[in-house]
Design a binder for these strands. Sequence first.
DNA 1: GATGAATGAGCATTCATTCAT
DNA 2: TATGAATGAATGCTCATTCAT
Lengths: 205, 205, 205, 205
Amino acid sequence: MAEKNQIDKRERILAAAVKVFAENGFHNSKVSEIAKKAKVADGTIYLYFKNKDDILISLFEQSLTLLINNVVESIKNVSDPLEKLRVFIRMHLQSVEQYPGLAEVMQVELRQSHKFMKEYVPERLAAYLNIISDIIEEGKKAGHIRAEIHPALFKRALFGAMDEIALHWVLIKRQKRRAYELSDSAQRLCNIFVEGISSSPHVGN
Amino acid sequence: MAEKNQIDKRERILAAAVKVFAENGFHNSKVSEIAKKAKVADGTIYLYFKNKDDILISLFEQSLTLLINNVVESIKNVSDPLEKLRVFIRMHLQSVEQYPGLAEVMQVELRQSHKFMKEYVPERLAAYLNIISDIIEEGKKAGHIRAEIHPALFKRALFGAMDEIALHWVLIKRQKRRAYELSDSAQRLCNIFVEGISSSPHVGN
Amino acid sequence: MAEKNQIDKRERILAAAVKVFAENGFHNSKVSEIAKKAKVADGTIYLYFKNKDDILISLFEQSLTLLINNVVESIKNVSDPLEKLRVFIRMHLQSVEQYPGLAEVMQVELRQSHKFMKEYVPERLAAYLNIISDIIEEGKKAGHIRAEIHPALFKRALFGAMDEIALHWVLIKRQKRRAYELSDSAQRLCNIFVEGISSSPHVGN
Amino acid sequence: MAEKNQIDKRERILAAAVKVFAENGFHNSKVSEIAKKAKVADGTIYLYFKNKDDILISLFEQSLTLLINNVVESIKNVSDPLEKLRVFIRMHLQSVEQYPGLAEVMQVELRQSHKFMKEYVPERLAAYLNIISDIIEEGKKAGHIRAEIHPALFKRALFGAMDEIALHWVLIKRQKRRAYELSDSAQRLCNIFVEGISSSPHVGN
DNA sequence: GATGAATGAGCATTCATTCAT
DNA sequence: TATGAATGAATGCTCATTCAT
């Protein structure tokens, strides 16, 4: 019971942190605000996290773990590498749509802290990206993907594209302008990244 | 002479700012450090810029203006839309290679600064991205680019990809690991974004 | 205990502030100096006061409340309006003698701080002054004070006179010149404001 | 001609300073704003004044000189000491009405700087106040003023009263509330300081 | 004399983190 | 565990003053 309460508390802090970070950005977020939103004393946060940075890292890793699990699960039963790629793209954007804080935290973490929290090595992110390059390797072996496609570059290109599109969607949404459907964007992204790299001539869509 | 000196001073501040921002990130950069690096008094900065934010915005817009000019100039005499796209990609990454601060400032501006994302309207960036979508429109009309390609999404996808790749290169470079050639990356990116979207079957590379 | 400590802390800050403000004037006083003198961290001050201005206002209101209480208590059992006035004058200067910071803070607040003169409405001060005009009204009704005396003007004239005299005493005292007795000044002030200066009986106006 | 221009410039700076100080208070006034209002370069001010404090002091002394001259001139042909006092009071408040900046500068100078510009000895002010005490001495000698009246205290009491009343008038005026007539106040002040407030003839003390 | 660009000292306030309870 | 009062380091910006022209 006490243990469950502890887990609860950690989760509550993380949940509060996503909202606060998404709202104000990492640097403009106050630990005390997270504490307030989590209905926890300021000091309590330091029982569960080393410092403010640690909250962000935890959040990021938690999100990525979730994302990785979702994606791996979804891809598991798909055999065609190109289809795997389509599923991947769809899953990523779907996750963003479902947890809009996710995209914002990624932005924050990847661009902002990435560079300044120099100690931190983004293993989880690497793992996530490697799912992509693995698919490419696999597709190349199977002859479904052209030999010229460079897996390590492709994974970053795709990730950058998805991330930028997610960011745009989040920004539009925040501005209360009618947000478009991210599932449409997923389809359009497939048009570029999947149909484009295929080794067979295009046969419609 | 006096006038030149003034221009010099503004430029010196901007040049110092790129370095400092790139090194520490916007939020962790001190105005006084910029001043010191520019060999200027702290107060002098406020003769040329409204505040710290204004330095960042100016930097960003200046960089983009440079980029736009370079790109437009390079594309001018190219008639094939697909080739235009290749040139665009090459130019962008070449510029990053030439002014490594550029990529970092972009990151900073675009992602890090929530404040800007809320208040600042990135007209220059929009103009830059529209060069891409214009090429796509043109290519579609000419029948060189498949009808399914969505210009507005494409421009963001390509930009996100280029940006991510630029960031990676900058980070590798900073870590003193042997930096790879960005021109190779450009070639590989073309493989994905240009050969992929073409309406004609691939004929080698 | 803890509560007492808190009250202590607020009081300590105010006590330190009187000294610092009196010594340097409001604008030349540093919050950090107040903190140091109160043996409190800089930030602690902001747990008890909104900002530097708020310290001054609190100080002023606290002083006036004290003054009002003292005066009201002293006057309570005096029936003759003219005697009330004498007591009032004595009490005011006595308070200054007892809390020399008081007079200086009054100066600071009332004269120096244009900002306050524009935004802050001195209710407490008005209440204090109205004690004077009430006495005058009462004396006029009872026939002890001439009809020509204008209560609203009288209250300000008396306050201005007392304040100027208090300031002079404080300044002399600070310069380490032998300070005269404020009780003598009180007596002399009564001679002017209560007994009148003319040696001949009034012959109308 | 050049000399006249110089005088002009000094006057223009002082005239600008009155307005700026009256508007914002001494500490919140910027030298550059004075310069702008005087249509003079910032640096030019330092050709005519040692520093910002010096502007205030000059202003104050200039005002007092004017005041003293006016008062002395007005009193010259009055023989009755009590009447002299009435004229003095009227002249002072009339001057305030005529040059509203005067009262504000007095406040600023006397309360604020008085204490903090420790080097400055207010000789001119002393001279002004001594006009009052001289009248009292004279009146006492002539038997028109009671022996108990203490000249040195009287001068400060009267000055404090006039100053407070002037300040109130200026504040009311600034708040755009219908300002009352200062000549009325002068009359009422005479009632207090000259005629005395008691309705019964003095019977000793 | 006149200018105004340049200087750089100075300071209120915030907020991540600690620790006595 | 949990609390939240207390801490104090850290910094963008202002503005009086200077001085090369």
